[in-house]
Design a protein around this nucleic acid. Structure first.
Lengths: 148, 148
DNA sequence: TTTGTGTGTAACCATCACTATGACACACTA
DNA sequence: TAGTGTGTCATAGTGATGGTTACACACAAA
């Protein structure tokens, strides 16, 4: 039930925009930082933009910006924006319906899985992009905004 | 990411063994209930056995049994036994090390991800196979042990 | 001891999500 | 008008996953 790498890279993107603090960053710049392709970044930015977390500025000198303060963007928001598979996958083929266990197992475990998922999400809601940006600044010994 | 159905099927297997309550079940029987192949079940049983959750009885009339009371098997134990990938995958290729954000982002987000993972695990530790078996019995309106 | 039963594991395959990459139309700025 | 950067499509390689066949081995029952 692992997540894709999208979540980690999306947090990376948003953290980059947060430390840049108002100066637009191009997808190519972000791709260099994340060590991937610019199209991959643009795909993620598309999802983040749909979720209202970022916005784009076209044309020369353009790039991406945070659509709201980093303090208001929780890791949970990022998670929801870029992950589309269920945390727990169930049986690939539905279990035997005419069987005492198979016919009821899904319904029986669902509540426990839901509680686990909610616990994960509640924890992700406690950290914001601003927190991550501050931690990156502390580790890298620089201050925000950072001149690139 | 391709998510694994192993956890759900493993819980299914253990629940089946729990309601069977001492009567060995063959991998073929479990495969029928889970609507999959017997070899898939045996692969999971191999992991569960390594984790000390089940044991096998060879020969005619044989099959698999729980290695300890269902009440002592937490969903967390099952999860640990059959899932081998990290909950959160990080960048496929390590981010740019010579970059202020890329060089520190992994270390910066790790604590938050660890807290989220621990929250998930703590929740999974609260439910046991016996709980799931009882719920299946309630939904299916039968009592344990179940005659197959 | 013999026969039948069931496990355990290896090998191979099809499928699917994921990431990478090239290409190009479009929007906007200078 | 020229240049820049986004947004999206199409394509391809990769890796994990689950399904299936095959077979050696262990054990129980007779």
């Amino acid at each position: 039930m692992p997540t894709s790498t999208r979540f980690a890279v999306a947090v990376h993107i948003l953290t980059g925009l947060a430390v840049s603090d108002g100066k637009p960053l191009r997808s190519e710049d972000l791709a260099w930082s994340a060590n991937t392709g610019a199209v991959v970044i643009r795909g993620l930015l598309s999802r983040l933009s749909d979720a209202g977390l970022t916005r784009s500025q076209l044309g020369a000198g353009g790039g991406s910006l945070l659509a709201k303060p980093a303090k208001k963007i929780r890791l949970l928001d990022v998670y929801a924006a870029v992950e589309d598979t269920e945390l727990f996958s169930l049986h690939r083929t539905p279990p035997c319906d005419s069987c005492a266990v198979g016919g009821n197992i899904l319904e029986a475990i669902q509540p426990a899985l839901d509680r686990a998922r909610k616990a994960l999400e509640a924890e992700l809601a406690k950290t914001t992009v601003a927190d991550v940006a501050a931690e990156v600044a502390r580790l890298g010994k620089f201050s925000i905004p950072l001149a690139w």
